[in-house]
């Protein structure tokens, strides 16, 4: 990827938490074990994985809510760890987020007008009238009537609230929007409206998206490239076509299959294998228990090196490269 085109880059980011209390009882939870990816200017990167895989921790690191234990997050080529107060302020203007549950992300005592006014009054030197006008513009931009400005969050449906959340995120004309499962709480009919809106906004304003989801259909619609995350690791990375046409990692294959199956087959199912514990990660591949191609060697050594096909399609599965098999 062209260096100048990268708006955000994560390099070998690790995130660990201490859990438990008392001497000898504290454990370390390895939530992100090694995350590297980059988002191109004006493009959308999809981060796909099941719950507990580290998607939300990644967003927290990207947004600078918590610094990573190890590794580097850089925005426009500059590491977040070197930021001073002023730089943080401009970073928080340029990088905005939309969260999963819209009702939780608003102050219930603020009406929509105040919600949209707050970022403007803090960050922009505008008169009250100008701010009001801007708020009305924002509402129109996301397809809502400006009259809604006097209403409170509980008066809206989920789809409308998500539009307001997007309007708030757009208030400061951000360069990067972090979308953490923005449509998974919404109905099918409304989901399409929000996805179309996001699609159009990107075309209009050249915003980059980090789109986080476990819904395969919406990822395919919105994203240019996709990173599949499992147990705190990116297990596969490639363009949307590469991932959908030729999924390489067994986990990606399972994920895609689960997303599109419309008939139940009588598969033999034994004990259900859960994701391994983050406080006691297994020595080998964390996916080994669930993998249909799992070999003995997979359980012994953790895969760390990515294999690339030469066209920017990376995968972290040892089994797919015969040279590393033994």
């Amino acid at each position: 990827m062209n260096e100048a085109a990268k708006i955000l880059e994560l390099k070998n980011v690790k995130q660990q938490y201490k859990v438990g209390f008392g001497i000898g009882k504290t454990k370390t939870a390895h939530c992100l074990s090694d995350i590297s990816f980059a988002i191109e200017e004006g493009k959308t990167l999809g981060l796909v994985g099941e719950s507990g895989s580290g998607k939300t921790t990644t967003t927290r690191v990207v947004l600078g809510i918590e610094p990573p234990t190890a590794g580097e997050v850089s925005y426009r080529g500059k590491s977040l760890s070197t930021y001073g107060k002023k730089q943080w302020k401009s970073f928080r203007e340029e990088v905005q987020a939309v969260f999963q549950n819209p009702l939780d992300s608003f102050d219930p005592r603020f009406c929509v007008g105040q919600i949209l006014d707050e970022p403007l009054s803090i960050n922009r030197k505008l008169k009250r009238e100008e701010r009001k006008k801007k708020a009305a513009e924002l509402l129109e931009m996301v397809g809502l009537s400006p009259e809604f400005a006097d209403r409170y969050p509980h008066e809206f449906s989920g789809g409308q609230l998500q539009r307001i959340a997007i309007a708030r995120a757009l208030a400061l004309e951000p360069k990067l929007l972090v979308l953490d499962e923005p449509v998974s709480a919404l109905d099918v009919s409304v989901r399409g409206q929000i996805l179309n809106l996001l699609h159009d906004l990107q075309k209009d304003k050249k915003i980059s998206y980090l789109y986080i989801s476990h819904d395969i259909a919406s990822v395919r619609y919105l994203c240019d490239s996709i990173a599949i995350i499992y147990f705190g690791q990116i297990v596969e990375y490639g363009s949307t076509e590469q991932i959908f046409e030729n999924p390489l990692h067994p986990y990606t294959q399972e994920l895609l299959r689960a997303g599109v199956v419309t008939k139940l087959t009588d598969e033999v199912e034994g004990t259900v294998h859960e994701v391994p514990s983050v406080t006691a990660p297994p020595p080998g591949c964390p996916f080994a228990d669930r993998c249909r191609y799992c070999a003995e060697s997979c359980r012994v050594k953790k895969p760390v090196e990515y294999t690339e096909d030469g066209k920017g399609h990376f995968t972290l599965c040892r089994g797919l490269d015969p040279a590393k098999w033994l």
Binding site: S157, G159, V188, G192, Q193, N196, V260, T262
Partner: peptide, 18 residues
């Protein structure tokens, strides 16, 4: 609107209104 097979689409069809 459902697109259960996750096929590639240029635009998602929606049901407008509430």
């Amino acid at each position: 609107a459902a697109n259960p097979h996750a096929v590639k689409v240029d635009r998602i069809s929606t049901i407008n209104g509430q």
